[in-house]
Design a binder for these strands. Structure first.
Lengths: 210, 210
DNA sequence: ATGCTAAACGGACTGCGGTCCGTTTATATT
DNA sequence: AATATAAACGGACCGCAGTCCGTTTAGCAT
């Protein structure tokens, strides 16, 4: 179940139809949607995210290419759809899960914990996340990203950061972007623990704790 | 004059030739390089960065498409070449320019000032910078980016940040990435001064100043 | 001047994301 | 069951970045 409905085709820029998520509309549409997601997971599983081209996907699923774009709007939209479960699970953890990531722990502790969790999550699903981001201007305005930033903002407020917590959250959030994390680990071989440690240092200093 | 030689074709990934920057090699090559840069600036000036396609550029400059790619390696490489002057000027400012951006001021002041300068710079050349970034994994490993991060790292050290200043610099640098800044200003209408103010708050808290 | 060779050239070609539009079909209505 | 219609379908088509390879040429050696 999706806590925030992730509607892949909902990019503000382009396609009118705003692809319906599941249960609505015609039966064959829903069937094809599942067919496509399934085939997409197969391709990613067998090869890599890069190997997932829209043509190949259409062929594999036995549908026309137009159908793929009708369902998901764009390649990035498809990637978001593939991520949606993992994303929802992560959202659930920081919103309703057990402390220190979920509510119940002091704000600073939560910030530290949720950052570490985000790092781990990104390293697990990062390739998909990167492909989902790779799109356009609205990268930061997609529902899960908005929720995530709002959550950081709230934690900052709770921790007593009064100066423009919204922008502070953006700035801080930038330190956890998939691009950066994947690059640090993948190219420079930084250990994930060091990233988490740096994040701890960062937020600790920012909320003035210590 | 370029403080750090920016060699557009030097992406570690692909093209072997690593396009020679100016004065080396054959005369016609150099001439075509200038021809292309000139035509590129024309196109960008008349329309926009997005309107600068490699085909159009080749046609406009009256050379073959192969030549464009031989010179610049990729679209991103071309963008870097277009940025190179502005980039070098900015480098000069924070390395040798007058305080507080250049050397001479206390580290925290320099951090604050250089961040503000970077924000202004990005808002001026951001579209090019975005197009130059838009490439690959090595976005952070291109010479100007490396120099910039190293500089932040040095300032952090000078300011007494002892815990993993390298990663701290990456994290902080992420808050100044073109994507984020352009999005804040362009989509959400945040005033540049607020961005600079947030940066000030951020680094002040991090170096434990005040 | 002539010839040699490495380098530069140009444009046809590939694979990709994304669009368009004529055709088919699921479903509601009678 | 027959019909209507909005929706979904499929694949030809477009423009793009990037590659490949046969052809041309600049600059040097003789």
């Amino acid at each position: 179940m999706s806590l925030i409905p992730i509607r892949p085709g909902a990019q503000s820029g382009g396609g009118r139809p705003a692809a319906p998520a599941a249960e609505t509309g015609r039966r064959d549409a829903a069937r094809n949607r599942e067919l496509l997601l399934c085939a997409a997971r197969e391709i990613v599983g067998e090869s890599s995210v890069d190997a997932l081209t829209m043509d190949r996907l259409a062929q594999r699923a036995g549908v026309g290419k137009g159908t793929v774009f009708r369902r998901f709007g764009s390649r990035a939209g498809l990637m978001m759809a593939l991520l949606s479960d993992a994303e929802a699970e992560f959202q659930g953890r920081f919103m309703f899960g057990p402390p220190p990531v979920g509510p119940g722990a002091p704000p600073l502790e939560r910030l530290i914990a949720v950052g570490a969790a985000r790092i781990a999550w990104t390293l697990e699903f990062g390739e998909l996340a990167r492909a989902a981001d790779a799109s356009a201007y609205n990268r930061f305005d997609v529902p899960p990203a908005v929720l995530w930033h709002r959550h950081l903002e709230m934690l900052l407020r709770d921790a007593g950061v009064t100066a423009d917590p919204r922008l502070m959250a953006s700035a801080l959030g930038a330190a956890l972007e998939p691009e950066l994390l994947l690059h640090s680990v993948g190219v420079h071989g930084i250990a994930p623990e060091r990233l988490a440690e740096t994040w701890r240092e960062l937020v600790t200093r920012i909320v003035g704790g210590h």
